[in-house]
Amino acid sequence: MSVIVRDPGLETTVQDTGRLGYYSIGFPPSGALDSFAYHVGNALVGNEPGAAGLEAVYLGPTLEFTQDTVIAVTGADIPAFVDDAEIPTWESVAVPAGSVLSFGQLRAGARPYVAVAGGIDVPLYYGSRSTYTLVGIGGFQGRALRAGDELPFGSLARDPRAGRRVDDADIPSHPSTAEVHLLVGLHSYRLTEDSLARFTDTEWKVTPDANRVGYRFRGAELEFVPREQPFGAGSDPANVTDCGYPVGSVQVPGGVEPIVLLQDAVTGGGYATLGTVVSVDRDRLAQTKTGDRTRFVPVDLDGALEVRRDRLAALDRIRSALAS
């Protein structure tokens, strides 16, 4: 009735839709970074939406199943094997008791997801099973998985079935240059006009400092408009008086190496926010890896809402098709 971790990979955590509603008291949401891959995984195995699954990065885990179940691998493009036979990804697969899921070398993307019929049953913490490793809460004992961990299956299976498959056209490709939409603001006025244009013209390279907290990029230097700093902002021109940071917001400490804050990030502080990545495009960011490139494509608020509406409509359509 469980999955046993034989090898955890690099950093594999239990994640769900996230711990929503506590941002105002300083609690980031956590949850699957690639929300699309996570939701489709649940739909493939016939789970209730919101059942917890596993998120890995770069190196897939090796997992043993102690009873017959149905699984689906989504997200990054990576070869997956059950007992050494390759299995299709973006498709639900029956796995027998005692079988072992393992992964080969990542081909594209960064984060594979594993959905299991019923979900992973760890205690709910403030309404979520998502792991927030920085403070050690949620998920499995508040941490990334280790060899020997045993995760019980949950009871959120609605209609587990093998052989459900996502249409090829709906499987995201993971180009080595990702394009994400950026809603410019709140403090974009702090950059010179040239620098703001440079920010959206540059293909930024993902540095090795790219994890669930945030992604740090390299590629250009940006200049701030000189000013006399207001009370409380400190002397660094990259600083403003403290404010809340939207998830997905972009800041540039020192004018070099912009950072996009993700689901495990600090919720507020004093760096100027140049813009915010549209929520559904964090899925794309989550599938870029160190050495990949990212372009930030500016949109206005209507454009941002349209991107979100279209992407969520596509997810709904895929979920309905898989449920029928």
Binding site: E11, Y58, L59, P208, D209, A210, T290
Partner: peptide, 8 residues
């Protein structure tokens, strides 16, 4: 190999 502040 160091990535994401972890060493592999």
């Amino acid at each position: 190999v160091e990535v994401m502040k972890t060493f592999h």
